[in-house]
Write a protein that binds this DNA or RNA. Structure first.
Lengths: 125, 125
DNA sequence: CTGAATCCGTGCCGATACTG
DNA sequence: CAGTATCGGCACGGATTCAG
């Protein structure tokens, strides 16, 4: 049996819950937002600028989900103009290691993957 | 600067390529299929049964993408009935470590996340 | 500045039926 | 057994506007 199947059996739900959490984490923006908050507290606008390509709407939704899941702490300062700062919680920081490991893998293998795709296209011709 | 931002700078594309690869890997099914192929070569139907909830169509598409990216090898045996076996390539196996690390993180924190969600809902009331 | 609300197109994905 | 083909719902996500 694979290590993954062993992990699923512990939960005993056929991997359903695991899949849900993984989908939540691995969606279009979550991982990038968490990684950007590494080592730094950022305001909404700063995050908006540092995560290239994210829309205001998706940043808001992503941050709400992260806050809901307890990965990010949201602190509102009673000022005008408003200042809202986002920081990783302890659980959020604990995700950083695994997440960066995966991101590092992706960075390392980008050339190989692109090469494999090109070869596949040629074969398909 | 965060470690993630450092990773992006290496590529110099503002994280665009990295995001593409991560999306490819972290979509609804890819990670689960790769994890299921850990330590074992499986036929199409076996995979279909072992990945709970995946449709035939999505299994086909996922496998094609994995084959295209060089993560999975597809071997067709000239028999009747047909037998097609899928195996992780060296690059596919190298993904397993980071992927299982992330899956392990998710499994560990499922209780904490569920608890945090419940607390969030109560607060929102 | 930090959102919330709305509109709306695109494409993902499941269901179903069919093929070699 | 191992797919391909087709259709359709609907959720994701971008653009825009409005609000506190």
């Amino acid at each position: 049996m694979s290590e993954y199947e062993h992990l699923c059996m512990i939960r005993g739900d056929g991997g359903h819950t695991l899949r849900q959490i993984l989908e939540q984490i691995c969606n279009k923006w979550t991982l990038l937002v968490v990684a950007t908050l590494d080592q730094q507290t950022l305001r909404f606008t700063d995050l908006h600028q540092r995560v290239p390509g994210i829309s205001q709407r998706m940043l808001t939704l992503t941050l709400r989900n992260l806050e809901r899941d307890g990965l990010v702490a949201r602190e509102v300062h009673a000022e005008v103009p408003p200042r809202v700062e986002y920081t990783l919680t302890a659980m959020g920081r604990s995700l950083l290691g695994p997440a960066l490991t995966l991101a590092g893998w992706a960075m390392e293998h980008v050339p190989h993957i692109e090469q494999s795709r090109a070869a596949y296209e040629r074969r398909r011709t």
